[in-house]
Design a protein around this nucleic acid. Sequence first.
DNA 1: TGTGTCACG
DNA 2: ACGTACGTGACACAT
Length: 543
Amino acid sequence: MEAVTNEAPNFDFETKVVAIAIAPGEAYCLSKENLKYLKDALAGEAVKVGHQLKASLLALRKEGFDCGGPLFDTQVAHYLIEPEASHELSILANQYLGTQLIESYDPVKNVCERADAALQIKKHLTRELESRNQTNLMTAVEMPLIRVLAEMEFEGVTIDTGKLGDMSDELKKDSQRLQGEIFEMAGMEFNIASPKQLGEVLFDKMRLLDKAKKTKTGQYATGEDILTKLAGEHEIAKKILDFREDEKLRSTYVDVLPRMISRFDGRVHTDYRQAVAATGRLSSNNPNLQNIPIRTGKGKRIREAFVARDKEHLILSADYSQIELRLAAVFAKDATMLEAFKNGRDIHTTTASKVFKVDIKEVTSDMRRKAKEVNFGILYGSTAFGLAQNIGISKTEAAEIIEAYFKEFSTIKKYMDDSINFAREHEYVETLLGRRRYLRDIHSRNQTTRGFAERNAINAPIQGSAADIIKLAMLNIQQWVKQEKLKSKMIMQVHDELVFDVHKEEADLFKEHVPWLMKTAVQLDVTLDAEVAVAENWFGAHG
DNA sequence: TGTGTCACG
DNA sequence: ACGTACGTGACACAT
Ligand SMILES: [Mg+2]
């Protein structure tokens, strides 16, 4: 089946027609006026097959129709089979059926063609999934998750536009002032937002650096890392950084989010993509709700504009603590790390104590900061160079730290080697639930290309298993909410965090039960931990 | 359309 | 000698 909508922005689309394929080569198309004749068939237990079913479920839901029965999404199925390939229906039809999708000017013919193709492709995808042992991942995780995501998207998020409106005025004023100051210091006017012009002003005209770093296209690099190093000596660099921050926040969030509010219900509705991220994570777009600022003072005010739907509700956020490092400890069976997590110790302080060979009590904040970067670097397969760049130390010092790390955490080193060797043997790596990432570049003779594949071999099982786990938690939480007929709604997922619009009467219950369901989503050699907080807005709902 | 940059986990 | 820590999406600019 497939529902077609118009292309209205935000959540303001309207359903046009729905096509139903019932046997190979036999499909019917109904206008929205006639959908009522499909009501029972849609609600029934027959498996619903389609490409991008979430979009169809939402289109039908807006017309007041609910879909029952199991789901089979051909796009998501192919994503499990070959995550980084194109999952376009036309390509799948060509690959599995040996046919070209007929592109007609008649939207009715097109949608019937697509519904028919999806129905026919299903058996091929089912066979492929079975051969990879991914049937359970498909039927027990990804397919039920479609309904959960559809419900979250349908529910939407409330934005305090008044707050953002105030910020927009302030940001405009601030960046206007900064622009004037930058022109003054540069002795000329130019477009600060043009990296090309900016680089020429800073490094040709003002000669702030003898050997300015260039990008791969030969322009001067003017990224945050470079400007931060200049900022101590040159006031203009600091001003440019401030200007950039203001413009980023204004142009990406403050001025955009209010325009994304739906006329339908006054809320913002993201679109979670379930077949994009190579590791198994979700992504979020239109708008992206997974990169809402939090790290800076101005950023935090944007997050404060994410509020509960009314006076009867609050925002609750629950997030996993160090889930990726816990998974690394589990995969490596690292006794030191497992012990630290078991005893609820601070993992970065523990790492610092081992790497810098001091007592836990002797760990300084600088040692902890460095150890934290080392722990992240490990998850990403970092080299000494990368670590040095990232914490602003010499490559020699970074190499020493890494050497000390692998001496203390030799099982982590072994995990990394094992993972790379697994990839060399199978040309893929896999997660806890059997999700794969193919790494055919692992045999590349180009060391840069091969290096990427090796780092992916280390990182993908960790990042992907964390994605598996939060998906399981989401399924369990939604099931619980439904079973208990609760009023509160899950409204966002941000990789290791779940956000809820909770009814005040249910706040304590959710505070108790949501973290519990997150921690118990899987049983591992380490306990998972989740923190939870409730507030009037999203920023407040963080520890 | 590609590039550089930067917001998040 | 070269490139160099994972995964995303969105914006402005330049072509
Ligand atoms: Mg966390």
